[in-house]
């Protein structure tokens, strides 16, 4: 793992991509810092941080797009997968290298609250809690980027996929408010979801009967639950979508709350994405 981590980190820091990412994050931080803190006179560094989330929409796809896609394209994955290292070592080593690159601007960011303290009193606690949240959000986004990069051998497709998903998650507050909260609409949405799952199963196993049976059983169960106790569907769409609401969990941190569930949430997102990455690499070997 350390071999892969070192190689990867070195390759980011000897090519444009790593510096581009670091530069991009720092420039935007600087712009917001001077706008909010220096000119605006806000005393909270968190205001800058909460405005900064969109840097990931562009920064993360650029940084993570090549991480696995390029290996596959150049067939260098043959070296890694036939060496005595596990797939987990490969995925985790690569992921840690991305985190290390991202940690560079975050460490530099830690200096800002110190600068601000020269001009007045600030709460270090909430400022560094905010930075921790920013770091966790970035790490979760990078994990999503790694997973997308494992799905394709084209860097461009990986970047676009990452952007689309990150954008959807970024907009999740807005998206979930589109849906009505009534139990009726939730039930309909779940009904459609079951149909979609049945279709996906059909494309995987190519068996009409089994897919139809699975779909029908799901729909019947849904109807029974709805008839018996419709209230549990209340606001169900929002609950489900909230799972994907990364920036929502981030907001707690920028409000100065040291949110343990938020930390658990981000670590879970990272773990799930890296697990899916491993699975997609394994699956390709078996196909």
């Amino acid at each position: 793992m350390t071999a892969i981590f070192k190689r990867e980190l070195k390759s980011y820091l000897t090519s444009m991509v790593g510096y581009l990412f670091i530069f991009f994050v720092l420039v935007l931080t600087g712009i917001y810092f001077s706008a909010y803190q220096l000119s605006g006179g806000y005393s909270k560094f968190e205001t800058t941080l909460s405005a900064l989330t969109f840097v990931f929409l562009i920064g993360v796809p650029i940084l993570s797009m090549r991480v696995l896609a390029e290996e596959r394209k150049q067939k260098t994955d043959q070296l890694l997968l036939t060496a005595p290292v596990s797939v987990w070592d490969i995925v985790f080593g690569k992921y840690l290298a991305l985190v290390a690159v991202f940690a560079i601007p975050v460490v530099i960011m830690c200096v800002y609250p110190l600068i601000m303290s020269k001009f007045g009193t600030i709460s270090y606690d909430s400022a560094y809690t905010g930075i921790l949240g920013f770091f966790l959000l970035g790490c979760a986004n990078l994990a999503i980027g790694v997973f997308m990069s494992a799905l394709t051998e084209s860097q461009v497709i990986a970047a676009v996929l990452t952007f689309v998903f990150l954008f959807a998650f970024y907009m999740m507050n807005g998206i979930s408010s589109f849906f009505s909260q009534t139990s009726m609409s939730t039930a309909v949405a779940f009904g459609l979801l079951i149909v979609a799952i049945a279709i996906i199963i059909y494309t995987m196993i190519k068996n009409v009967l089994i897919s139809v049976v699975i779909g029908a059983v799901g729909e019947i169960a849904l109807v029974i639950v709805y008839v018996v106790k419709s209230s549990i569907f209340q606001g169900g769409i929002q609950k489900v979508l909230n799972v994907f609401n990364l920036s929502g969990h981030y907001d707690n941190f920028t409000n100065g709350v040291f949110d343990v569930t938020g930390i658990v949430y981000f670590i879970s997102v990272i773990a799930i994405c890296l697990f899916l990455t491993m699975q997609s690499i394994q699956k390709r070997r078996w196909n």
Binding site: T2, A3, R7, Q74, T76, Q78, L80, T82, P84
Partner: peptide, 26 residues
């Protein structure tokens, strides 16, 4: 293993690559 297409990282020097391979092979 030497695959059909040598699995080389174009952004490394030969020596760096050999060191990386040595680390991979523990």
């Amino acid at each position: 293993y030497l695959p059909e297409m040598p699995p080389l990282y174009f952004d490394m020097t030969v020596l760096e690559y050999m060191k990386f391979a040595a680390d991979l092979k523990k």
